[in-house]
């Protein structure tokens, strides 16, 4: 505490910066979020439950969480392959590809949405060949999953890259010298070491997918009960002037994402590093 006291005496500006930080944070973030909770609390338990558990809402949860889980799983697998390739191998164009991994962060979600729809709809470059095979991508849950894979990919790759770069080659050499083949070394030495980072990437990608709106609405078709994600349902409640209903569903989504955030923090505590990217 004596060090703390000394610091406070020497450097100026604690009062004003701290005061500004707390005021700005409260006005922009905390008070509006509190308004959301208060609004949905105003419904009362019975009406709240009715608002968040009607069949159309439950169908949207199933679709949103289901597609998000599938997308995060695909991202965990391919994100691992991409990160491994970028960290361990050399090939032409590697630096450009590495930089392009962040494209889904930089590209506005609405642009991603219309671009994916253009490619995978029935007249698109890929859609025209997939449709005769009986695979409809645009305006189905497959399309929604595809959009979620697109926006979630950088999370897995960017969390795994530093973890893979930090791997000590010595432990792999030790495993090899003890007679392990490459596959055994991978499953017993490499995978356990990077598992926290892989799970963090998975959870970040999942958290982003659950709340995603812009890239999904163009490709999803937005049919109630079938291709309507929860974010879109909140907007349609709002357009029908059911603000309390919209607030109630939002609270459910917020609790889901806070829960995920909490587990991500726990995982990062385990992995000993803070994710530096941006959502």
């Amino acid at each position: 505490m004596s060090k703390n006291f000394a610091k406070r005496q020497v450097l100026p500006g604690f009062g004003i910066t701290m005061g500004y930080t707390v005021t700005y944070l409260s006005l922009i973030v905390l008070v509006p979020l509190a308004a959301l909770f208060l609004k949905s609390a105003g419904l009362g338990v019975a009406d709240f439950w009715k608002a968040v558990s009607s069949p159309r809402v439950v169908a949207s949860y199933k679709l949103t969480f289901g597609a998000s889980l599938v997308a995060a799983t695909i991202n965990a697998i391919f994100g691992f392959v991409v990160a491994w390739t970028l960290v361990r191998y050399k090939f032409p164009g590697k630096r450009i590809i590495d930089a392009m991994i962040d494209l889904p962060f930089a590209l506005p979600t609405a642009v991603s949405g219309i671009a994916l729809t253009a490619v995978y709809s029935s007249h698109g470059w890929f859609g025209q060949y997939l449709e005769p095979l009986g695979i409809k991508v645009a305006y189905t849950p497959i399309g929604i999953t595809l959009a979620l894979v697109f926006i979630g990919l950088p999370f897995v790759v960017r969390t795994l890259q530093p973890a893979l770069a930090d791997l000590e080659r010595e432990s792999e050499e030790a495993a090899a010298s003890l007679g392990a083949n490459r596959f055994q070394t991978f499953t017993r030495v490499i995978l356990p070491t990077i598992l926290p980072a892989l799970l963090t990437g998975f959870a970040l990608s999942l958290a982003r997918a659950i709340g995603e709106y812009g890239s999904v609405v163009f490709i999803s078709g937005n049919m109630p009960m079938r291709t309507e994600i929860t974010s879109l349902l909140i907007i349609s409640k709002l357009e029908q002037y059911d603000t309390a209903g919209a607030a109630a569903i939002s609270v459910v989504m917020l609790i889901a994402s806070f829960g995920l955030l909490l587990s991500i923090n726990l995982l990062q505590h385990l992995a000993g590093r803070r994710y530096q990217g941006a959502l």
Binding site: L33, G211, Y213, S231, A246, L254, S257, L260
Partner: peptide, 11 residues
């Protein structure tokens, strides 16, 4: 960052 875009507008 943990609040989805639509909820960010709704508040």
């Amino acid at each position: 960052f943990a609040v989805s875009p639509v909820v960010s507008g709704l508040i």
